[in-house]
Each structure stands twice: as C-alpha cells, then as structure tokens.
Design a binder for these strands. Structure first.
Lengths: 148, 148
DNA sequence: CTACCCATTTAGAATTATTCTAAATCTTGA
DNA sequence: TCAAGATTTAGAATAATTCTAAATGGGTAG
C-alpha cells in the first residue's frame, strides 16, 4: 500500500500498527461495513455485508478482524441480550438503548459528568464502563399505545 | 404443597403466581442454586448444580425456570462478554464489575443517586439500566504487579 | 533478489449456547 | 373424574463462536 493510500484510510493503518496488527484489505472492509451502516450489526451481519464487496472473505476472518478492531480501539463490542454480540464503530462516549420490543439498538449520548459515579471497593481498577438502557423505543411505544 | 410450605419458600410461590407462573419443584431448585452460591453462574453451571439434587432435571427446564424467575423479578440476567449469559439473584440496586483477566463477576453497590443520570431523546421509555464495569479485580491486579 | 519467518486468511470442522419439538406428566377447576 | 392447559423431559435443531491445518502473502535479513 502506498503512502497516499495509507493517508486516505483515515488512520486505520496506523491504529492497527499501534495495536501490533497489520493493515489488511479484510480489516479495511470489515471496518468500512461498520462505518457504512451504524445499526449495531452482529458478526454474522457484518459477514454478510462484507461478502458483497469481498465474496471470498470467511467467517473466521470477520471474527478476527472485529477482534483486531476492538483491540486497537476502533470498535466497541456490545452485549445486550442473549443473542449475538453486536459491534459499534462509534467511539465517542455514549451508551446504548435497547428496545426490548423490536431489538433495535440506539446510541445515546452521555453527559460528560455521568461516568465515574460508581465507587469501587479497594483494589478494583476500572477500565471502561458499559451502560445499557433497556426499554421501549418511540416507534414501539406508539404501536403499543394504539392497540387494535 | 401445604400452606406452611408455601410460607417457608420465601415468597417464591407468590412471586411466581403474580407473574402468571405455577410453583414447581424445578423452579424452586433452580432458584435455590442461585441463592446458594452467588457467583453469577451460566445456565449450564446452574444445570450442573441443580442436577446434584435433582438428577432428572433437564437442560430445557433450567432455561425455562431461569426465564420464569427473570420474568417475575426474582433474578437478573447479565451479559458481560461473548460467552454465556449469567444469572444473579441479587435484586438490590447494583451493577457488575467484570474482571477481564479472570472472568469473575462482582456485585457493586450503586449510590442511590447514580441511576437516572442519562437524558433520553423524546419518546424513549427506559425500563431498566444495566451498568457493567470492565477492569481488573484486586487479585489479578496483584498478580500483574508482581511479575516473575 | 531470495528465502524464511510470521501474521493472516481460508474452509470447514468442532464446540458452545440456546431454542425448539413432541410426547409424557402434572395441576387445576368444572 | 375429566379436560384443558402448564410444565417437564430427552433429544434434535439451530445459532454463535472458536479452533484447526493448510495456503497465502508481506517484510526483511542476507
């Protein structure tokens, strides 16, 4: 990959390198899929979307790429229900709203002060907080409110 | 089950009934397993422990019982990593600390004011908050600090 | 330039987690 | 007692993830 291409990929190569990973077209593709449609897809969904552009990509590679992206801080992994893990390329401070009716996930901004409110017992070292809010999204609230 | 036995099971029967479920020995057993060792076991672990007392209990029943207990508010379901869902009979307001090194889960009390800090966009109805803190527990922090 | 090392990818198998199915059993109320 | 419906059971089916071994490919020491 040329220097120009490196500059064009938005720092992906550098972030990967910093994390001890190489740049690969597959990792680029997987990252692009996440950036293109930010609907918190599962690994399986990422696989399906990535295949459209890169038909030879394999299942294991998608998992590998997602793990690499998570490890170098470009992607967040989100566990919300008993189903598959979802992935989110939004690295701004935010939490997730999960609609228990339609399973949709929404990003919710956090006020700056929200984070460090939880006092931990001695010796525990917090590295990150994951806040999930379960409830009903506006669409589903509306449908529920208007029964047949 | 006699009235006396009902009184002795700590309100389990009533809670189940309120949720539209019947009392069953399996549900009692699964609940007891959770109460006896509060280490956030997975469904599989609950199954193994429950079998010691009730060898005929089946896998599907354990899932059924856990779901029933969750639905009537006696048990919380916790998703912390890509692995199996864990179950927690502590219904006091608390969040979970997950040690990324040893996979242990700790309950962490929340100060009363912590909860409603997240302003939701219009139309969203929050039903519950799940806060997970990822990091390193005291034991693992100690081992890391003393390398060979 | 070449050879080697090692990271990465691939297909597919294996494993793990969860749900489903159909039959048997049990509980409850008429 | 009987019928309806809830629950349990074993095991199959499905879903999610990880593993394996072979192939590929890039980067670098020589």
């Amino acid at each position: 990959m040329s220097v120009v291409e490196k500059k064009l990929n938005g720092g992906l190569t550098e972030r990967l390198n910093t994390g001890g990973f190489r740049f690969t077209p597959q990792r680029q593709q997987v990252y692009d899929v996440l950036l293109q449609k930010r609907d918190h897809p599962t690994a399986e969904e990422v696989f399906i979307r990535a295949k459209k552009q890169m038909p030879e990509i394999s299942h294991a590679t998608v998992y590998n790429c997602l793990d690499a992206l998570v490890e170098c801080g470009l992607v967040r992994q989100v566990q919300l229900d008993r189903g598959a893990t979802r992935f989110c390329p939004n690295m701004h401070e935010h939490c997730h709203f999960y609609c228990d009716v339609c399973d949709t996930v929404y990003d919710v901004d956090l006020p700056a002060k929200t984070q460090p409110g939880v006092p931990l017992p001695k010796g525990f070292k917090a590295e990150r907080y994951e806040i999930a809010i379960h409830g009903v999204c506006p669409d589903c609230a509306r449908s529920k409110a208007k029964p047949v």
